[in-house]
Design a protein around this nucleic acid. Sequence first.
DNA 1: TAGAGTATTTGGTCAGACTAAATTACTATA
DNA 2: TATAGTAATTTAGTCTGACCAAATACTCTA
Lengths: 245, 245
Amino acid sequence: MESSHRNLTQQLVHELGKSILQGKYIAGDSMPSEANICTQYNVSRTATREAVKMLTAKGLISSRPRQGIKVLELKNWNLFDTDVLSWILIGKPDLYMLRYFLQLRLAIEPEAAFLAAQYASEENLQDIENALSRMKDAQKGYDDTHEADIEFHKSILTASNNPFFTQLKNFTETALKVNIRFTNRMKAVTKEEYQAHVDIFEHIKNNNAQAASDAAMITQNATLAIVNEQITNLELEIANELVTS
Amino acid sequence: MESSHRNLTQQLVHELGKSILQGKYIAGDSMPSEANICTQYNVSRTATREAVKMLTAKGLISSRPRQGIKVLELKNWNLFDTDVLSWILIGKPDLYMLRYFLQLRLAIEPEAAFLAAQYASEENLQDIENALSRMKDAQKGYDDTHEADIEFHKSILTASNNPFFTQLKNFTETALKVNIRFTNRMKAVTKEEYQAHVDIFEHIKNNNAQAASDAAMITQNATLAIVNEQITNLELEIANELVTS
DNA sequence: TAGAGTATTTGGTCAGACTAAATTACTATA
DNA sequence: TATAGTAATTTAGTCTGACCAAATACTCTA
């Protein structure tokens, strides 16, 4: 277990959480007992128990006397938890997972833009505009394109002024990072894509909620369509291999 | 602290979580130290620390030596956590909170219906249909209208076959329960509303994704519009009171 | 063979000691 | 007097060991 600035319990949480997300322990059963974790990681029972409790709080596991510690089914996991999202990101890239992310982004972000157009404060607008100019700078090589893109989308969620949408900033950030793994180009954002972002901002600024929502939806739909196509091709390939073999 | 079937730590988590959600401890500072919680609730330090760790895992608090335990800002809270949602529900009804819920439902549920139309299995469809017939029975007084309505919406999220949407079942359930508090009629669902639900189901069954999405959106938009109007009236009243006083 | 009683396993809870980080108070010195 | 350095204080972090309680497996008896 790598040492770090974090305390022991946190480190253990991270190790165990990562292992669960990587599928080392399968849902329904399995998972070492407290005692085993203690010896395996060479930590006290206190640290182990606290780590187990934290993972329990995130919905990954449950524990009962005599039964031991069980990994819960995916549907119980707090997938919007920052840690859980970071552990997803550690895992191997998965096109289906990317599609799951994009399907929810398609739901969230147009509506967030809609709300931003209604409720954004001056400061909110400023933040979006700043992210936008960071994106422009990034195209000239003065900034990180990916980072700037992430900031843009997060600033819109903030501007929705709805705590539930705000909470989803981690989700969107992770979604974009997963996406990046599948796009091998250097620049995250083409000239056309940049313009699409500008359009969304302008609509928000002009309080044109429906136009902002529509613009965001077009962008999201385009991305999702690409992934859907990739998955279709992948499945065709697999089907062909089965036939020829 | 009320005793229950849950273990000590869980009970403490519940007590403390509820208190935080009720605003007993304000973000930024305050919150008793471990030692204080021990004496206040008459539990050991072990139980206290495990409870604190669980609340930390849910993003409600953070703790550091000498600093003590601090309540974090709302933006750090895991609002999609089942426990956190249940604590929101305990609090006093809040029209603005209801609007937050409805704004996200408006984003989520049409897209969930869209996906359900694409990916629902036979079993998924059966579950939706069962919920629908429960709603019909409920109108005749054979079942609980609220429960059946909740089941319907949850079954569509399940049918999306997307783990992120599935995760949001708790959210939607809580949203509906918050909504119930503001509708004082006995029946949760009128004849027209029931028909709207049937329409959504039919579109899903016929794989007509866009129609399913549109139908869901109309329903959600109508509900949101009502709440928006109520808030507008409320704010007008408050403004008038300020003028006349 | 059914059922009662017993043993075993594993998490739940408690107590106490010591460590370490962060802050405050104090003190000696330039 | 200002201030750097040091000590004391507070509070969470970690460890150890003991005992409790729930769930299950086992065993013996009627």
